[in-house]
Design a protein around this nucleic acid. Structure first.
Lengths: 126, 126
DNA sequence: CATAATAATGATAATGGTTATTGTTTCTTA
DNA sequence: TAAGAAACAATAACCATTATCATTATTATG
């Protein structure tokens, strides 16, 4: 049943995401990986992004507009600049604290969260 | 320039959202409002949802799948059940605390956030 | 090593949610 | 009550994403 096979394209996508901290879209990833694999198709990029997300090797960030991807899976949050729309990392001292606080007033079982902060990034604030 | 004009359709959309706590999609809203306005078009629903969101009278919640809408704008968070995909309200004791914590380690200016919790709702846990 | 089995690919069509366009209708105000 | 403008219904267009399918690459096996 669906034994995973190695693919150079997938490897390349993963490597690219690990090298980046700007949370590129599928299209940006496509344009980059195409330098190494000129014939790669956008469908292959999407397919592998979905697969890697399912495997927990990358994170998919859903916002307004196209999804963005993060090759760094340690728990952290994100910030979206209202001006330049860049998506930046935010590191909280204790990510699990958020879940604990919410759990106090919520009857279901909370096992995770995703936070998106909004504001003006330091570059745009200048 | 763009003086806002009253519309019964918009009124009805707003009224419906205020009466609900289940964060319906544009399509669900469309199906409901159609009972009152059988000729309303889906485009009108989208147009008014965008307008109301811009005015701050409702909140747009972007997740995987179609956007969902909330007629209650007091600060609160949301919970998405991994099983039944219902979207529920979560009320934190202090919503602004999250911003303050993040601001400690972030150089830009944070002026808001949206949190989406994940887990199993109390109904599905049974 | 050769070959069979099957997962992954590239090319492309299809989908689904959302936005834009256009001609008509409904509000507003003067 | 008539002119001007915003909102409408109908529908086409758009864009991100997913599905299809014939071919190629990777892995398992004899």
């Amino acid at each position: 049943m669906a034994a995973l096979k190695y693919s150079r394209q997938r490897e390349s996508i993963k490597r690219f995401l690990m090298s980046r901290y700007d949370h590129p879209t599928a299209d940006t990833i496509y344009l980059h990986v195409r330098e190494e694999f000129p014939n790669i198709s956008l469908g292959t990029v999407y397919r592998n992004l979905a697969l890697l997300t399912e495997l927990g090797e990358i994170i998919k960030i859903t916002t307004d507009g196209p999804d963005r991807f993060d090759g760094h899976v340690e728990p952290h949050s994100h910030f979206l600049c209202r001006k330049c729309h860049s998506l930046l990392d935010v590191h909280l001292e204790d990510e699990s604290f958020i879940d604990q606080q919410a759990q106090k007033n919520f009857p279901g079982m909370i096992d995770g969260h995703s936070v998106l902060y909004y504001g003006i990034c330091s570059d745009c604030a200048k």
